[in-house]
Design a protein around this nucleic acid. Sequence first.
RNA 1: GGGGAUAUGGCGGAAUUGGUAGACGCGCCAGACUCAAAAUCUGGUGCCUUCGGGCGUUCCGGUUCGACUCCGGAUAUCCCUACCA
Length: 858
Amino acid sequence: MSEKYNPRTIETKWQSYWSENKTFHSELDPKKKKYYILEMFPYPSGKIHMGHVRNYTLGDVIARYKRAKGYNVMHPMGWDAFGLPAENAAIENNISPSKWTYENISTMRSQLKSMGLSIDWEREIATCDKEYYHQQQKLFLMFYKKNLIYKKESMVNWDPVENTVLANEQVIDGRGWRSGVEVEQKKLSQWFFNITSHANELLECLEEMPDWPEKVKLMQKNWIGRSLGCEINFDIHSNYKNFNTKQLKIFTTRPDTIFGATFIAISPFHPLVEDILENDQDISNEVKKLQSQKLNEESISKNEKIGISTRLEVPHPFLKNKKLPLFIANFILMDYGTGAIYGCPAHDQRDMDFAKKYNLEIIQVIKPDGINNTDVDEAYTGEGSIINSSFLNGQTIEEAKETVINELEKKKIGKKTINYRLRDWGISRQRYWGCPIPILYREDGEIIPVPEKDLPIELPSEVDLSKSGNPLANHPTWKYTTCPETGMKAIRETDTLDTFVDSAWYFLRFCSPKCENPFDKNEINYWMPVDQYVGGIEHAILHLLYSRFFSKALNIEAIKEPFKSLFTQGMVCHATFKNEEGAWVFPSDVEHRDGKLYQASNGLEVTMGPNESMSKSKKNVIDPEEIIKNYGSDSARWFMLSDSPPERDINWSDSGIHGSWRFCQKIWTTITSNIHLLRENDTENDTNEYSTSAKLLLQKTHQSLDAVTNSIEKFQMNVGVAKIYELINHISKFQPTQSSEKHALKISLKILIRIIEPMVPHLAEECWNLCGNTNSLTSEPWPKTDKKFIVREKATIVIQVNGKRRAEIETNLGATEAEVIEKIKNIKNVSEHVEDSKIIKRIYVPNKILNIVIEKNE
RNA sequence: GGGGAUAUGGCGGAAUUGGUAGACGCGCCAGACUCAAAAUCUGGUGCCUUCGGGCGUUCCGGUUCGACUCCGGAUAUCCCUACCA
């Protein structure tokens, strides 16, 4: 047996074996305990990059490990295939979004297959498949019926040159990415999911999710942002002629500061604004400016507050003679609270900035405890007691809040409210490459959901994306249809769904990917929830929150929460490169010359930017193909798992890949050089009469097995890898002479082969096969740790003097303090440091440490 | 501006969760094999040192017999988000 380790041969051999034998096929089996492992499905951007390798290797280790543990494992894969890049590619390369997407899928599928992932490919889905979005349209109708979907006016980023709506990422420094002109805000009627109706449930269920990272739960909690406050109705007095508004409702979380109120501010998009403009045309230009200006990064960082003074005045609810001026201000959000506030400059920094700019009164109403804060530059937001506030004087902030709310409710001019930062989920996109929304607008003005039997509404295959505007609206025929009930003329909804909708339920579809309904209840009840979800931390909020919302809205018992356990892996980062024309450049296209960087393909000079997470749009991606070609996917997988803890961000570097290659080599040579031993039939051996070195080997083996098992359970793959290194290092130094030693070595090697399988599956299968086994290693159970080999017989006790390590001794387990003291009497290093000093006390932790605390004689 | 995280040798990182800091890997140094190189194998490798020891987990401070670990403050980097009253 002197064949060389040849990953290419081995890996293709086992990949086809798994595929031909349907090794990873999964189906419902009520007798077996299920385990649903899912990694976030990829966007088919072209090729996989190192971030994908990290994500899918990690999930695959868990999948293979749980299979070995006897679970009925489901490990599917699919494609998050709708989205903007396909349209951009279509324009740039004159290829249809569909063709581009499916070609990418095909490339990436074979790349993933070359990694040897234990995936059930029969469950593969792509969200752009007609079959998938057909079901999604049904879900849309279901939600529509439940009143979870509604339409309202909402702002979009508008590029006036391209005549098109821009996504946030297409707005760069307040300008359109293609046109370079300043982006405007435009009102459009759009569809929304009523996610806020589930805000409280989404918040409270977080408490019952012990297997989610605390940081993710915290982020979601802050994002939902439940806050207790109150609404106050202010009367409006005006000299305007045609003015119907009598009241203005504001929201505050600080009713305790009501006596510090010196102005009222409303959003430029507040309904009251129209009323004002009708009477006060002088300010209409200014207001329009505020309305159309998307605040760019610059003005945000400068925190420039702009207010337009109106001729309206608002009486203070508790001070009859006090009138507050009303402003239209750019820093008031229409989407939060009521779109109107009262300003209390003394205790809110934004209000302070605003008051100073427009010379408004500043009234201090909270006196900090202890100190007398008279600094008027900075708003005071800390604790304190109320002053200058009539009936609130002397109260604490909390007391005052309650008093004010009671008073308002008594006078029927306000009430306690719970407000959420979370806003409803806008799902309309003015795009072609997405799921069509199954809605018709009838000529008589009625909005009609398309009946289920008429689904799917298919995307037209011929579409002109080079024209500006909404591609589906531009299509010559697609939108024209008739109402299925009345026969009246109708126009289809030409917006498509946000791609976050596609990914909010794909994990349900995997349970029954071919079902003619969105999902099969039986299958869902068996497979859901996902036992382990693995994905990037960047999805900590939106994707996960939307998926949770879907699961709750569907109201199926098995999926109250879709993801039982969540693991968020860290980002794989890489430096970014830009050439002198400002275009992103692939790292592989960058070359070093004369201390400068150049783009190899065209000679342009290149500058290096900061490390950022790998993404196709910034081109800072590393294609794993090269590494897999040179070292094999087992080495690539092993390398990805070693070194870095999975939850931590990494800056990609391939220094170290050589060590992984060496590891695979070492496994190979160790197994092949012991192949005769491994092929021998097992004999009933004198298993209890091991030599000392054989015992030591078995101890190391079982300790390693125990450690590796624990590391996998705890997602510390890098530690597991280190423990396997220790084991192989120990094994390769072991020289068996007696038969019992050979027997021990055989046991050890077999355990080694079994426990490396989740990480380097092809190599492990080949080794297993070389041993003369005819079954696949994947059907072999995970070995059990034999406790008898790992019991500690001795304890190592560290001796410290004043917390500094001075010696260490071996004792029997459970030795008493007196025994330890007796033992260290003659240790020079200890007695020297103690000398004649007075011993103040001794701290003894059995089996661990003895610390002698002495008086310092200085 | 807000929210969330991270920081340990030349580098990636480990540390039984408050008890020997630096496991394991990379790199580097030395040796073996070789005509030679690559590969492989063996050994060494935190820093300083007057060879007694001293200093060391981003920085400053605190709690403790004892702190990488807990608390307070600062700095840097990454992720998410955009003025949330």
